[in-house]
Structure formats: structure tokens, C-alpha cells
């Protein structure tokens, strides 16, 4: 909290000028400054900021002239929708790949999966996004362009959850649903590859560790099938650690979303953050950073809680 506050206050761009422009007369500038409480000492300003924060007030965005809370409510579901679809795909692909690589450690399959993962770690996510646009949108024409929905479908579906795919399903509007899904496919796919690489890599490392365990030999000595040894015994032992990895990956997706949303013009929190940054919209930057930070922390706590709940060894 202190960190976000300080970042905001040491910004070199005077927020007063950002609001009223730099040609306003001096007395107007003074009046706005007093109105915003910027004439008081820093610690008083911090106190006021925390007070407002505790009451759910993040101030008003200069850029959109809405309150920051309203803006976040509007943009946040888009990011969550994107990140959630991405992590589901990444988990469904990454975990089996990681297990396969560990079971066949040292084989050609393993090397192939390792290279695939390393590439996912190494490619800048905006490059992947641009290539995906170039190939699937511009050249092949398979995917729709940037944005969250075609103009024709915009605002057709009543907002219930804020997730366009779910809202259109609630409204039984199949065309809107397909449109939303098609728009989601590219950014979600790009993010999914990025996090799949991490998930598969961690799964492989954990599985190698687990497969070297004595209890795996016990399980094999019991005459269990290879599948049961791998999934019930070895994988069962890493499942808890994987939950932690998934939570961290999800948090990392929020970061990846900043860049991806910018490329795909996805109206989410990431794009909101970058646009506010470029416009020196202090309250918006602070609010968005704070929300992301809180989610990050919440996910970390959740992962810890899951660990305690799921692992019989931790009492």
C-alpha cells in the first residue's frame, strides 16, 4: 500500500496539470491543488488515502472521469475471463506433457517437450501475440481481429457476470457466444502457451522427484499397472505442490495480460493500466496496481491454505 502510494506521489507529472491542462491560470491551479488535498504534507495525504481506501474509495480517474472503482469493475471481468480460460487450457495441456516428459526422461519425447517449454519461456509474449495476429487473422482469416466482440454484437447481451461468454449463454444468444469465444481464442491461446510452458516444466521437475521415491518402487512391487503407479502414487504426491504452481501461474497471467491485452486491444485491466500509465492518470494506476497486488497476495494465501488442507503431512 505504502509502495503504491509513494509511486503515485513521486510521479514527476503534476496531477493538477494532468487534470486541467498546462495553460490554466495560476489561481485555478492553486484552487484545484487545495481541492485535491495536495497542499498538505505527505503523511497527511497518505492518511487520507488509506482512509479512503478502507472505505472502498480509490479516487476518480482523470482519463475516464469515472471513479476508479467503477472502471475496475468494468474492466476486470474481461481480464479474469481471459486468464481463467488461459489457465484451464494451460493446465489441461501442460500437466500431461510434464508427466509424460518425466516418465520418459532422457528420451526424444522428453527433449522435444523441454524445447517446447524453453521456447515458451523465451519468446516475448507480445511477439507471440503479433505473430498469432499475423498468421490467424491477417493471413489465414481463421480468427477475428482484436477486441472482445464484433461491433455488430457489442452491447447486445445484458451484463450479468461481466464475462461475455457466460453472459451470452445466460441470454441464450448463441451467435454472441460464438463471437465472444472466437475473440477469446487468440489472446487466451497466447497466454495459455506462455503459462503451459511453466506448468509443464514444473510438473516435469516434481514428477522426476516423485518417481525417484522409494514408495514408487513399493507401488511397482505390489504389481500395480504403470498408469496407476504414475498417476495414483507419483502424481498424487505432487498434486498439492502443483496447486501452488497453478496459483502462482494464475497470478503471473495477470502480468502477461498487461502486454497481451495491449496487442489484442482486449478491454481488460492490463490495458487500462498501460493506458493510464501513459496518460499519467495517477489514481487509476494506483488503483489497478493495488487490485493486481491484492489478487496476487490472495492467490499466494490461497495456495498456502490449499497446501495445509490437502497435504496430510502438514497439520
Amino acid at each position: 500500500m505504502l509502495v503504491t502510494f509513494l509511486i503515485g506521489r513521486v510521479m514527476p507529472i503534476d496531477p493538477v496539470i494532468a487534470i486541467i491542462g498546462d495553460h490554466a491560470p495560476e489561481d485555478v491551479v492553486q484552487r484545484v491543488r487545495v481541492e485535491l488535498g495536495l497542499d498538505r504534507p505527505l503523511y497527511v495525504q497518505f492518511g487520507i488515502y488509506v482512509w479512503q481506501l478502507l472505505h472502498g474509495d480509490l479516487g476518480r480517474s482523470v482519463m475516464t472521469s469515472n471513479t476508479v472503482v467503477e472502471d475496475i469493475q468494468r474492466y476486470f471481468p474481461a481480464t479474469i475471463e481471459l486468464a481463467t480460460v488461459a489457465i484451464i487450457v494451460a493446465t489441461l495441456v501442460g500437466v500431461p506433457l510434464g508427466v509424460l516428459a518425466a516418465v520418459r526422461a532422457g528420451s526424444k519425447t522428453d527433449v522435444g517437450i523441454r524445447i517446447l517449454c524453453l521456447a515458451g519461456h523465451s519468446i516475448p509474449i507480445f511477439l507471440l501475440a503479433l505473430i498469432s495476429l499475423l498468421v490467424f487473422y491477417a493471413n489465414l482469416g481463421w480468427a477475428p481481429g482484436p477486441g472482445r466482440a464484433d461491433v455488430a454484437f457489442e452491447g447486445l447481451v445484458p451484463v450479468v457476470t461481466g464475462f461475455l461468454t457466460i453472459d451470452s449463454l445466460i441470454a441464450w444468444d448463441w451467435d454472441s457466444f460464438y463471437d465472444a469465444l472466437a475473440h477469446l481464442a487468440q489472446p487466451a491461446g497466447v497466454l495459455a502457451y506462455f503459462s503451459m510452458a511453466y506448468i509443464a516444466r514444473m510438473t516435469r521437475a516434481f514428477m522426476l522427484d516423485a518417481l525417484a521415491g522409494e514408495y514408487v518402487i513399493t507401488a511397482r512391487a505390489k504389481g500395480l499397472s504403470q498408469l496407476r503407479v504414475i498417476w495414483r502414487h507419483a502424481f498424487g504426491n505432487i498434486a498439492v505442490r502443483l496447486v501452488t504452481v497453478l496459483a502462482l501461474t494464475y497470478a503471473g497471467l495477470l502480468e502477461g495480460a498487461v502486454v497481451t491485452e495491449t496487442v489484442f486491444s482486449w478491454p481488460g485491466l492490463g490495458q487500462y493500466l498501460t493506458v493510464s500509465l501513459l496518460n499519467a492518470d495517477m489514481n487509476a494506476v494506483l488503483g489497478a496496481t493495488l487490485v493486481v497486488g491484492l489478487i496476487y497476495m490472495a492467490l499466494n494465501l490461497l495456495a498456502d491454505a490449499a497446501y495445509k488442507l490437502l497435504d496430510p503431512r502438514v497439520s
Binding site: 496496481t289 493486481v292 496476487y296
Partner: peptide
């Protein structure tokens, strides 16, 4: 922990914006 609580790129973005 305080520094770890924020995603890296977002914190870096905010820092850069704060300096110039």
C-alpha cells in the same frame, strides 16, 4: 515479501512511470 507480493512487470511499470 512486500516486493514479492507484486507481479514483476507491473511493479517495474509503476516504478518507471514514477521516475521517468
Amino acid at each position: 515479501d512486500v516486493f514479492l507480493a507484486f507481479p514483476r512487470l507491473i511493479l517495474a511499470l509503476a516504478f518507471v512511470a514514477a521516475i521517468h
